[in-house]
Design a protein around this nucleic acid. Structure first.
Length: 720
DNA sequence: TTGTTCCAGCTTTTT
DNA sequence: GCTGGAACAA
């Protein structure tokens, strides 16, 4: 392939970045400016021009999705396999390092990766032994504290007591938590990063090996790195000057979970010989959208500075809609969606973006009654489901009997008569002996101090595991999973569960077997590692998607955070109200407001063609009615880029001053969501009912003519 | 052991 | 005002 193909399709700034001399490079890439493109082409350049072999390439991202995309785009461009390149997430790559060098990292070969849910359970379990009141020390808060320390590279032993009671307690729990993880061979997400950093730092030969190997290091979303991630990058590239980072300080929205926007500023200090390149040409949005975004973000201080521009035209003005209340806001959005679709637009090009998940319900309801397919992002993912985690716990115990977290999880699931009392006895002994729960259970049985029934039940569990292990021995991975799913009793348990829930769970378990069948061991493995352990780690590190039906043409609903990196032709930014967005908490703390503003910037720049900003003049939140002011972010957009949407004939606005009091879930004749027929307008769905008696009127969404208000005393409506 | 009731909590989320 | 988890009773 000739070099020209790598750079000919790029604009000047992109080309400058891709072909930069081998030295530290910071690419400030605005939204929609071709950031991934630059990274992919830079990798190609390093191979084609700088003479690197794929083996010499390291590329780090934050999400599995980004890593997968980068890998496939590199392969498409270079027409070679990217298999020997290390392209992955910080956590995935740290995990790989730890598997390869478990001994140097002082980890057992069969160490298990736990997700945050598992981590929380481990912490909760500590409380019993330490006599800690969980209402005084919320486990969630403790988890957060521990992870925050690890993200900063601080271990319990490093912490200096200040005499502060809170801090003292935190250190005590942190210490105990580290001990349990150590004993059970458990590694949480933050630990992956910290451990990988320590392993490299303390093993000169290993570090040298990787410094030599990774001649080119590429980092995506650099503004989202935390302290330990940046430290890891610096360690790995020290003396090599080969760090190529891409990021956007204006899109840093994860400060609240440890991301350090400062890293992007420190980079310039740490590498005085670095080259800074700005990508400002945007290929996504119209001029009006970009100008609005630029204006909003200039209200932040201390930016590196960047102004997006486009060669395409101004496009349509941004529409601002002041809804009467949150119901009206949802009606409005759904009506606009209906118009878009009836004009031939695709639903998958539409996104409704909100600040907090709680806001989605309003829209879901309205989309439901109008029969509009939609998809809500977020929520439980495949490997996070209870039934899946239970099955995985059995698999983990097969691999390692001393995994206490898994032991506790399934020792009595399905119920087999091992009650709290018995488990408490096991815990007690385990603690006294400093042994695992499994070992303690064995000891208890040997002692013969348990009741006959409990002994029998416990033996039954231990024999079950022995049977599972035997049946799984020597089998293919998916056969092993199948054995566990079928013989653990989980299927029977969920079959008994009433409703569709149990059915779905059984299906999910079957899907787990399938996932094991599809698991591509070779991709994850470059050493002689245990396939089952790799599958378990994969389950923790890549929790899978929430919903599968990506192929249906759906309206997309998600938080602003999860919208980062995506683009849609039509975007609704909803709930633009003070207290909601920016959220209450962030208006009270300085600094945090700027992050909210960046979030708004992210939201605006998702839109390609049309952007609607909506807010409600009255909103029910946490059961209380509030009358929020329009968000300051809307007012930060100059009037010339904005148009107010006036109430149109077919967009309803309740006529009474206080329509709430008149709203009802059902009238004497009709219910919300009911299908009705009108002589002239045809068929439709009842969306709203207000008033009573002769004043009673209903709002109906007709298939043909859209939304109409009808006085019940006049209109002849028929129930269908 | 299961079903019920009560009560706290309530941004954002990936790994 | 709703939800999920924990405490309680049967």
């Amino acid at each position: 392939m000739d070099v020209n193909t790598i750079i000919s399709s790029l604009n000047d700034a992109q080309r400058l970045a891709v072909s930069a001399q081998p030295k530290p490079v910071l690419v400030l890439a605005g939204a929609g400016s071709g950031k991934t493109r630059v990274l992919v082409h830079r990798i190609a350049w390093n191979i084609q021009v700088n003479g690197a072999s794929p083996h010499n390439i390291l590329a780090v991202t934050f999400t599995n999705k980004a890593a997968t995309e980068m890998r496939s785009r590199v392969e498409d461009l270079l027409k070679i396999s990217a298999r020997t390149m290390w392209i992955g997430t910080f956590h995935g790559l740290a995990h790989r390092l730890l598997r390869r060098h478990a001994k140097q990292a002082k980890l057992p070969d069969a160490f298990q990766v736990i997700d945050s849910d598992d981590q929380l359970r481990v912490i909760k379990r500590l409380y019993a032994g330490m006599n800690i009141d969980d209402s005084k020390w919320p486990p969630k808060q403790v988890q957060w504290y521990i992870n925050a320390q690890k993200d900063e590279g601080i271990r319990a032993k490093h912490m200096v007591e200040t005499g502060d009671v809170f801090q003292q307690q935190m250190i005590a729990i942190y210490k105990a938590y580290e001990e349990v993880c150590e004993r059970s061979g458990l590694v949480d997400f933050a630990e992956l990063l910290l451990r990988a950093h320590e392993m490299l730092r303390d093993n000169e030969d290993v570090l040298e090996f990787y410094r030599e190997r990774f001649r080119h290091v590429h980092v995506d979303e650099f503004q989202d790195t935390n302290t330990i991630q940046y430290a890891w990058l610096r360690l790995l590239t020290e003396g090599q000057d080969n760090l190529f980072v891409v990021g956007d300080d204006d899109q840093s929205i994860y400060g609240w979970r440890g991301a350090k926007i400062e890293n992007i500023y420190s980079f310039q200090k740490h590498y005085p010989n670095h080259q800074l390149i700005r990508l400002e040409q945007n290929y996504r949005s119209t001029g009006n959208i970009l100008k609005a975004a630029n204006h909003v973000i200039t209200n932040n201080d201390g930016r590196l500075g960047k102004e997006l521009w486009t060669e395409s035209g101004l496009g349509e003005l941004i529409s601002v809609y002041s809804a009467f209340n949150e119901q009206d806001e949802a009606y409005f959005v759904v009506e606009k969606i209906r118009q878009w679709v009836s004009d031939g637009g695709l639903r998958r090009d539409i996104a409704i973006l909100y600040r907090s998940n709680a806001q989605s319900r309003q829209f879901e309801e309205k989309l439901m009654v109008t029969g509009t397919p939609y998809r809500v992002y977020g929520g439980l993912r495949f490997f996070e489901r209870m039934e899946i985690k239970n099955a995985l716990a059995y698999l983990r115990l097969i691999s390692n009997r001393h995994d206490d977290a898994s032991f506790e999880r399934v020792v009595n699931t399905p119920t087999r008569g091992i009650g709290n009392k018995t488990i408490e006895n096991i815990r007690l002994l385990a603690r006294a002996q400093g042994a695992s729960l499994w070992r303690a259970a064995e000891l208890l049985i040997a002692q013969g101090t348990l009741s006959a029934r409990a002994t029998h039940a416990l033996k039954g569990f231990m024999q079950l595991l022995a049977r599972l292990e035997e049946a799984a021995d020597g089998q293919e991975l998916f056969e092993k999973v199948k054995v566990v799913v079928e013989q653990s009793g989980l299927i029977e348990l969920y079959k008994k569960e009433k409703g569709d829930k149990g059915e779905v769970r059984v299906e999910n378990l079957e899907e787990l077997v399938n996932a094991a069948r599809l698991f591509d061991f070779d991709v994850e493995n470059d050493e002689n590692l245990n396939e089952l352990d790799m599958f378990l780690a994969h389950a923790a590190l890549e929790a899978g998607d929430a919903q599968a039906d990506e192929y249906e043409d759906c309206v997309q609903l998600m938080t602003l955070h999860s919208a980062k990196g995506l683009e849609f032709k039509l975007v609704f930014l909803v709930g633009l109200e003070e207290g909601l967005f920016p959220s209450q908490q962030s208006t009270e703390e300085a600094g945090r407001l700027e992050e909210e503003r960046r979030l708004c910037y992210v939201g605006i720049t998702r839109a390609m063609q049309q952007l609607y900003l909506t807010h409600a003049e009255s909103r029910r939140l946490y059961g209380k009615e509030s009358y929020p002011r329009q968000s300051r972010f809307v007012r930060e957009i100059p009037a010339e880029y904005v148009q107010d949407v006036r109430i149109r004939a077919n967009v309803s606005r309740p006529v009474t001053a206080k329509p709430r009091s008149g709203l009802a879930a059902s009238s004497g004749t009709f219910k919300l969501g009911e299908r009705v027929k009108h002589a002239k307008f045809g068929e439709g769905v009842v969306l709203q009912i207000e008033g009573a008696g002769a004043q009673e009127r209903v709002q109906v969404n007709f298939n043909d003519v859209g939304l109409k208000f009808l006085m019940l005393s006049y209109a002849k409506l028929e129930r269908l």
